[in-house]
């Protein structure tokens, strides 16, 4: 049996006195998979994503990504882990408005210590590959939603992460832009990128994911293989 890229074992996450956001979740995701995490609001999808990204820590259980016990990392190591292993794409892009598109994309590499010249070359390559090279010197505020999400994806891929985590990547986009992003994720997966996708959007899940995990009230209600629509 191959070693999974992501392994969650009996993971629970509680906030204050309320019911657990995640309750005894165990999950294994292999490299190259594209997994869609589905579920209604409050089901624990984003919490699960945050735990995998090292943005949050479980109340109990273990989270291992590419051999790294993410649940044991301190703030500094967790930041280095994200730089090295994870690319994040958010629903609302989370681009920095006072930086140009290129500077946004270069940022994770520069935080990791890459020289500006090398970062510029890598960013240009990514922006060209994603079809937004002409916007390199523009500011995010001037781009359409779809273009902004492409920039966010470029930024997420900057450090060649083993894992791409996307939280509702089409949630803030119009239909046309959503389809663009959907196609982009398909292409990335086709190139071998491991993707964990949190979404409400069943169509997106069907289109991009090779497997869907259904969360209800913090528990895994279903974990099924899906044939993506190509």
């Amino acid at each position: 049996m191959t070693v999974p890229l992501i392994e969650l074992t009996a993971v629970s996450r509680r906030y204050d006195e309320g019911p657990p956001a995640l309750d005894d979740v165990s999950l294994r995701i292999s490299a190259g998979e594209a997994v869609a995490i589905l579920g209604p609001s409050g089901s624990g999808k984003s919490t699960l994503l945050n735990l995998v990204a090292g943005l949050d820590r479980p109340s109990s259980g273990t989270v291992t990504v590419d051999g790294v016990r993410v649940d044991e990392l301190g703030e500094a190591r967790s930041a280095r882990y994200r730089r090295a292993k994870v690319g994040l794409v958010f629903q609302f892009f989370n681009l920095l408005d006072d930086l140009t598109v290129a500077d946004n994309v270069m940022l994770p590499a520069q935080l990791a210590g890459m020289a500006r010249g090398a970062a510029q070359r890598r960013a240009a390559e990514l922006l060209d590959a994603l079809g937004i090279g002409r916007h390199a010197t523009a500011y995010p505020g001037r781009l359409s939603g779809g273009e902004r999400q492409r920039v966010a994806v470029a930024r997420a891929l900057m450090n060649r992460p083993a894992l791409l985590l996307a939280d509702e990547p089409t949630g803030a986009l119009d239909t046309a832009s959503g389809e663009e992003v959907q196609q982009l994720l398909n292409d990335l997966h086709a190139d071998g990128q491991t993707i964990v996708l949190v979404t409400h959007d069943l169509a997106l899940a069907r289109s991009c994911a090779t497997r869907t995990v259904q969360l209800v009230d913090g528990r895994v209600a279903a974990d099924t293989a899906a044939e993506p629509v190509r």
């Binding site: 730089r83 994040l88 920095l96 940022l107 994770p108």
Partner: peptide, 16 residues
């Protein structure tokens, strides 16, 4: 603070 969260999500360490 939101930008700070983005920076941290992209790998900015506490020292940085």
């Amino acid at each position: 603070v939101h930008d700070l969260g983005v920076h941290k999500a992209l790998g900015m360490t506490p020292r940085q």
